[in-house]
Amino acid sequence: MNRDKNLPLTETVYYILLALTEPAHGYLILQKIEELSLGQVRMAAGTLYGAIDNLLKLKWIQPVQSEDSRRKVYVITDRGMEMLRMDSERMMHMVETTRRRIKL
């Protein structure tokens, strides 16, 4: 089976995509990620900015209109959603296989 060359996603990218299943601006993304990861992933501003830049180029996220004219708001695209789904299936398979082989 040929796997998409962008997989597996990094933890940073995975959480950004997950956070952007609802529209959000930069700082809100940081807060959502901290919340979604139960405080395990605390991303810094510079790291997030670079990742957003990259995800926009890949067209996995896109800017959307918002009331806040100074802060850019982004949301996940269909392509981004597809990547998120593929990577979660990959991880699900890993977890299931692991459970079958060893008692956790």
Binding site: H25, G26, Y27, L30, A44, A45, G46, L48, Y49, R70, R71, K72
Partner: peptide
């Protein structure tokens, strides 16, 4: 801390600075 980044549009620069300011920088 020093970052290195240039911007095409003033709005991009503003958005970038606000992200840092929101995060306490």
């Amino acid at each position: 801390r020093i970052d290195y980044r240039s911007f095409k549009h003033a709005a991009d620069f503003e958005d970038y600075r606000l992200l840092f300011e929101d995060s306490g920088w």
